[in-house]
Design a protein around this nucleic acid. Sequence first.
DNA 1: AAAATGACGAAAATAATTTTCCTTCTTATT
DNA 2: AATAAGAAGGAAAATTATTTTCGTCATTTT
Lengths: 286, 286
Amino acid sequence: MSNILYAIRERLSSLHPKERALAEYILEHPQEATRSGITELAERAGASTATITRFCKSMRFDGFPDFKLKLAEELAAPSEQQPTYQDIVAGNSLQRIVAAMEANHLRSIADTTRLLDFGALEAAVAALDRARRIDLYGVATSGIVAQDAYQKLIRIGKEANAFSDPHLQITSASNLGPGDVALAISYSGATQETLDALVCAKAQGATTISLTKYGANPLADSADIALFASSLEEGMRRGDMASRIAQLHVIDILFIGLVSSRFDAYVPKLEQTYVNVRHFRKTKGR
Amino acid sequence: MSNILYAIRERLSSLHPKERALAEYILEHPQEATRSGITELAERAGASTATITRFCKSMRFDGFPDFKLKLAEELAAPSEQQPTYQDIVAGNSLQRIVAAMEANHLRSIADTTRLLDFGALEAAVAALDRARRIDLYGVATSGIVAQDAYQKLIRIGKEANAFSDPHLQITSASNLGPGDVALAISYSGATQETLDALVCAKAQGATTISLTKYGANPLADSADIALFASSLEEGMRRGDMASRIAQLHVIDILFIGLVSSRFDAYVPKLEQTYVNVRHFRKTKGR
DNA sequence: AAAATGACGAAAATAATTTTCCTTCTTATT
DNA sequence: AATAAGAAGGAAAATTATTTTCGTCATTTT
């Protein structure tokens, strides 16, 4: 199922009556939602146009037209051609596991790419470029992603730090200032410690960026710039595998975007780092 | 190519100057055309909004919004041919970077899957299942992958440890014994420290597994079981991005293979870990 | 029971698109 | 070469769509 429809279904229970009526109508007639204007849809779903706009904004779209466009794009990608997410169950042969894993990872990268918000991406790259200091927050699996971003950033001479420890996160966030950047990573977007750190960083005047699963969530709501990686169906036995790969995909894009934005400044540092590591370790490898 | 873009190109020669300028702009930046409003597009294409509307009508669309929607749907449809590895170069637009990144990651996962040796995989899973202790070695980017494997293994109660520090690697390897497993990760397969640790582990009687790029390399040659992740074309400016994702892909397969091999033993631990983390942190997230 | 909060829609405000209409440019004709 | 006819194209008016504001009503809290 499409990520947008999935995100809607996920939120269904937490919606107000009219919003829910609207959400249910969209879930039942997604095609029609993309074809009609806001007034028409309001009538058919039994809600007001105001409710629709509010709903779209709460889903972090620019507005109804933006929602319509993104939904249309998702619906246009025929899912029967694309591999769909596979659950992992008992007693599967290695062959089946490998096939399922491949499908999930491919799908999750493709989905993430399709859902990318270029505006947010550009803003994030610009903020990272400007930043005097960059803090990276993430716990457990998301900590791995934060570490990965950290390793990349220091290669181009950025003053970056990654924290998994809640106390250190807050400690470091407290010492950020305007122009600095805090990038908080959490699959669910609901990790309290990471959220606390982000809020703290924001209070210090830092530019805050979130990287979470798709759909509204506390972390994304609090961040100045919200980036998303595709979310898998619930019930997937270990949804965080694909999501972590999707998040790394976004990190890679951010990093290459950053390097490309000022090629002359960053590439020499990157090359120098590489040369130095080789020279001092006298090995070819990583 | 999309039908709409194709239709535009076909009509190109029969269009008036301004319409042609518009058409050419759309052909070159189809994505942007779907993202922007009519005013914005008019400015960028050097035509007036009136011209755009007229153009859309002449193409038998209802109007500009209709055109935009249909074009977006077409562009969202899955891509034509198998993507090939793309190099990352200066001054690329974010759109191109994203497209290249997606192509590389998709390709690298697909390639890795195709190159998988099921025999080695099965042997690795069996060794991990048997192991009393599991050591994970990896430096820098490969250290991230080792950390990821570590986080997974401890979730199912495996006594695992990940080391990036060369001294600690050796120290820990020295205390492995028969039945234990050392999994060494290095993209090049030539990282001296990691190789040393693996050799040391082997001398202690541990089963050794390597995870490297495809092809002969010291690490794979020394390991009892050699696993491979797809190697990118040489000269790729940052080949380790895709390779790291491919390595994680292999780790995921190993892990799920392990869990599936003895579902009844491992899944309850996995579930329990998950429940406990949620309970003690009183959050839904990661 | 009063106050506070929040959902919600009517309607005003704003934004986007389409249409009208007029100017300008081209081309055909005298 | 001058002029009329016709089409291209843009400015701005008209229309249409979307968003925001604001007030009402319902629900919850004190």
